[in-house]
Simulated assay, not measured.
Amino acid sequence: MTTGAAVIDVSRCPLCGESNRCAMEVERETGQAQPPCWCMQADFSNAPLAKLPESMRGLACICARCAAGTPPQD
């Protein structure tokens, strides 16, 4: 039985799919202490969070590029 909910890869940015390089998630998965994550000092004011469906919020970190509001390069 499926619930219809999307499976979230916590190592990937939910906006662009690139690696989010979340040190906190690496520490959780490996049990090895990590330096403070880049996100602890990041400014998220330009992040296009409105593009992220409500059901996907709070489940995986966005990447530094998306946090800065920089569009992906195609």
Rank of each mutant, 00 (worst) to 15 (best):
Pro35Val: 02
Gly4Phe: 11
Pro72His: 04
Cys66Val: 06
Ala67Thr: 09
Asp9Phe: 05
Gln34Asp: 02
Glu29Ile: 12
Gly17Lys: 00
Ala47Gly: 00
Ile8Cys: 12
Pro53Val: 03
Gln32Ile: 15
Arg65Asn: 05
Thr3Tyr: 13
Ala5Leu: 14
Cys13His: 00
Lys51Asn: 14
Pro36Asn: 06
Ala60Cys: 03
Ala47Cys: 14
Cys22Glu: 00
Cys39Asp: 05
Glu54Asn: 07
Arg12Glu: 10
Arg28Pro: 01
Met24Lys: 13
Thr70Glu: 15
Lys51Met: 11
Ala50His: 11
Arg21Ala: 15
Leu49Lys: 00
Ala23Tyr: 11
Met1Ile: 14
Asp9Arg: 00
Met1Ser: 15
Leu49Thr: 04
Val26Lys: 09
Ile8Arg: 13
Leu59Tyr: 02
Ser19Gln: 10
Ala6Glu: 14
Cys66Gln: 07
Gly31Tyr: 12
Cys61Gln: 09
Trp38Lys: 01
Pro71Val: 13
Cys66Gly: 08
Cys22Phe: 01
Ala60Arg: 05
Cys39Ile: 02
Val10Ala: 13
Ile8Asp: 06
Ile62Asp: 10
Gly4Ala: 14
Ala50Gly: 10
Cys66Ala: 08
Ile8Gln: 08
Ser19Trp: 08
Ala64Ser: 15
Gly69Met: 02
Ile8Thr: 13
Ser45Asp: 10
Met40Cys: 11
Asp9Leu: 07
Arg28Thr: 00
Cys39Gly: 07
Arg57Ile: 04
Gln73Ile: 10
Ala33Glu: 13
Ala64Thr: 01
Pro35Phe: 01
Ala42Met: 05
Leu15Tyr: 03
Pro72Phe: 01
Cys13Ala: 07
Pro35Cys: 02
Ser45Leu: 01
Arg28Met: 08
Cys39Phe: 06
Leu59Trp: 03
Gly58Tyr: 09
Asn20Thr: 07
Cys39His: 12
Ala47Tyr: 07
Glu25Pro: 00
Met56Lys: 14
Leu15Asp: 01
Ile62Lys: 05
Glu27Tyr: 04
Val10Ile: 14
Val26Gly: 02
Gly4Asn: 13
Val26Asp: 07
Phe44His: 09
Arg57Ala: 06
